[in-house]
Nucleic acid binder design. Sequence first.
DNA 1: CGGTCTGTTCTTCG
DNA 2: TCGAAGAACAGACC
Length: 281
Amino acid sequence: MPELPEVETVRRGLLKIAKGRKIAAIDIHYEKTITNENIAWFKETLIGATIVNVDRRGKYLLFRFDNQMTMVSHLRMEGKYYNLPEDGEIHKHTHVVFHLDDDTKLCYSDSRKFGRMTLVKNDEALQVAGLKTIGPEPTAETLTVEYLQKIMHASRREIKPFLLDQSNVAGLGNIYVDEVLWMSKIHPKEHANLVSDEQIEQLRDNIIQELAVATEHHGTTVHSYTNAFGNAGEFQNHLHAYGNAGKPCERCGTPFKKIKVAQRGTTYCPHCQILTENEND
DNA sequence: CGGTCTGTTCTTCG
DNA sequence: TCGAAGAACAGACC
């Protein structure tokens, strides 16, 4: 389940093997991965084009080509890129294969078939659904205290679904939301507008730091698949809350509880993370 | 074997 | 206009 640190790790892996490479041929084994209406056009437009860069915005990868086109790729839960020699045997669940001009192939596999790719002109990339409404990148420059305070004051949503909403802040998913809420001592069901300005500042700092440190560790590996970019991560060894239900909180020793918040599995410390008003779980 | 669960985004409904 | 809930995706697991 790639979140920002994992997607950034994939981006760096892609740059190393694909930047400067020309697409020689494309095999598509599962057409729904490509959301363009015209699959033939998708292939024709990319064959002969050279990958000049791979950018990232939130959890979206943007492959930039020398023909002024951008392929937007979202991995959703299980999407993975990996690289093989041209004569290598592709893994199960491989839906798209880009044959490159250096006798290798860039493969996309996705056991759940949730991931999507779409090809658009460069200047239309930010109009793609999902990117059009995406919030600021979680960096010190782009995610300001003022911005976070403004949008949190204006929302009565529970903080967890609020932070999972990519239009508020880009890049957070289930794992890192549980982590930053634990670090910031905020209950996952706390309403955004009831969080104090001081706590918002803490939360903002924690989001920025947590994602940066996780990126340094190449993200969190949940299911490990060798040879796929972004699966060498070892940040799972640094998680405090996620996956620790029943184990003692590092700060106070109270066992972590696991509950549902907005239909999502949520781990939190019932002692450190307290609701300001109700005593509901 | 049937039900549940999984994460993310989009769509629908109130 | 907002937020909650459902839909969709497909497979792993009990």
